[in-house]
């Protein structure tokens, strides 16, 4: 097992690195090959206020006068050495821009994750144990959560809690209360698939023989839930991490805009409207790294959490 697990872990890690590099290449190609303004065009845009020498310097740095493949090689080489270039809008180093924005987004995403898990467990527990009518209502909640756009949740929360109840103010989006509501906004769509998986898993596990045995030993449902049902349900939840992290990173763009917060999402949004390719490229690459890394961890952890998971080293798509 252990040597087999080691091989599995190494293969997975190597695959993850390859996927990140390819994702970088894909992003680069999408940004620079698709029609639309190229960097040089947007550099000439007077709103950047760049002098001719500065433009020449940037052109030389990114190799903009060379073929796309050379630019790609240059870009990939810089990425591998951790050199992310400079923002075309502010001339600040991209690493600094993103580094400043990251803590806020990570805090938001982490709070959203906690809220989503709590919400999903509460919904699943209720859907499983409450009497008929309430259970039916709770069972339909995930479908509702999946149908409401993120920005609508945010706007409704702002309308209710900021404008009517004055629980927070939109002028101070980084306050604890405002962060809480932004996190709830981000958490609601994320909690839906999580709750669905938990409900399905609970339904399945509680029909198993061991659950019957535990009940016949006189274990009440609450301790059965905690001691026997949560653990087997944890695995499908761990494998859902992929989806969740993607939702959190993508949703941050909208949630931060809705609430007027600064963060990675706002950086992406500004980079898009300002055609700031280096910033966009780096932000997307960073998201891909986070996303792939979390997936890798989930893949490596699941055989440890649940011994029923077979460790496979073959490629599977």
């Amino acid at each position: 097992m252990t040597s087999q697990y080691k091989r599995y872990a190494l293969t997975r890690a190597a695959q993850a690195i390859a996927v990140v590099l390819l994702a970088y290449v894909l992003t680069f190609l999408v940004i620079s090959v698709l029609p639309g303004d190229s960097i040089t065009n947007s550099l000439r845009d007077p709103q950047h206020g760049l002098s001719e020498e500065e433009i020449q310097r940037i052109v030389a740095f990114y190799g903009l006068d060379k073929p796309v493949l050379v630019q790609l090689a240059l870009s990939l080489g810089r990425f591998l050495t951790g050199e992310l270039g400079f923002s075309l809008q502010s001339n600040l180093p991209v690493a600094q821009l993103i580094g400043d924005a990251l803590p806020s987004t990570l805090g938001l995403a982490a709070s959203a994750l906690v809220i989503a898990v709590v919400l999903a467990v509460a919904i699943a527990y209720g859907a499983h144990y409450l009497p008929g009518k309430w259970a039916a209502v709770l069972r339909s909640i995930p479908a509702l959560f999946l149908s409401v756009p993120n920005f609508v949740i945010g706007l409704v929360l702002i309308e209710l809690f900021a404008f009517r109840l004055h629980s927070f103010t939109t002028t101070d989006p980084n306050s604890a209360a405002a962060t809480l509501f932004a996190a709830i906004t981000l958490a609601i769509p994320v909690s839906a698939p999580l709750a669905e998986v938990l409900i399905a898993s609970l339904d399945h596990e509680s029909r198993q023989d061991y659950a019957l045995v535990a009940r016949s030993r006189g274990l009440n449902e609450a301790s059965l839930f905690v001691r026997h049902l949560v653990k087997p349900s944890a695995l499908p939840t761990v494998t859902m991490v992929a989806l969740i992290v993607g939702e959190l990173l993508g949703g941050a763009v909208i949630t931060e805009t809705t609430f007027g917060r600064d963060g990675l999402g706002t950086v992406v949004q500004k980079a898009v409207t300002g055609e700031d390719q280096p910033v966009l490229q780096a932000a997307v690459a960073l998201s891909a790294i986070v996303f792939v890394a979390v997936n890798l961890i989930a893949d490596l952890v699941s055989p440890l959490v649940d011994p029923r998971v077979k460790v496979r080293t073959e490629v599977h798509a």
Partner: peptide, 28 residues
């Protein structure tokens, strides 16, 4: 299968909404 599978993995590695944002920013 291997090549296409890798391609799909790469598409999945970029969070969906961000990928959409990048593409739409390139296309206009």
């Amino acid at each position: 299968d291997t090549v296409l599978g890798r391609f799909v993995d790469v598409l999945l590695a970029i969070p969906g909404f961000l990928l959409a944002v990048v593409i739409v920013s390139s296309l206009g």
